[in-house]
Amino acid sequence: MTGQLILFIILALVAVASALGMLFSRSAVYSALFLIINFAVVAVFYLLLNAPFIAISQVSVYAGAIMVLFLFVIMLLGAVQLRSEHTLTWQQPLAIGLGLILMAEVVYLLATQAGLSANTSAVPEGFGSPQAVGLTLYTSYLLPFEVTSILLLVAIVGAIVLTHQVKKKE
């Protein structure tokens, strides 16, 4: 229990630090790399929570595919460094204040919600394994799974249509 707690605290610190690094780094490339660290840490959390299949998907889909797409677009746009001055100077402190209020509200809710204690009962054999996930996915969640394929098709068509350049006719 204490070993898990120490691991949790260290990983949580890494996750929050990498999220802060993403927020405040100047270059978009550094932000993307910090976000990859964050995704990898969250994948370790998934492993701690008995979700190995989701953890692997997290690494391959999020840290792999999505972040490579981000880095590709950042490079495509020439790693643009934006000027730092803001048109609305009061907006940044206001946003940070509102974020702190949001966080305080959530922490208050969590602190006052009793009953969400540790569930010490052992997980069933194979909980979160690819076999169990696949069985649930292709029985109870078959229709959402098929709808997902249409969503991905729409995304493919949309991305091609949006980036397609019509040649100007003289």
């Binding site: 229990m1 898990q4 707690l5 949790f8 949580a12 996750a15 929050v16 999220a19 802060l20 993403m22 927020l23 964050n38 959390f45 929570l49 946003a95 940070i96 974020g99 702190l100 949001l102 966080m103 959530v106 922490v107 969590l110 919600q113 969400l116 204690s117 540790a118 569930n119 010490t120």
Partner: peptide, 21 residues
């Protein structure tokens, strides 16, 4: 397993950081 509140707290902090971003 650690209390689920720990994970929810971390999730809330990360969500807030995303909002601020």
């Amino acid at each position: 397993m650690l209390p689920v509140g720990y994970y929810l707290g971390l999730s809330a902090v990360l969500f807030t950081l995303g909002t601020v971003g």
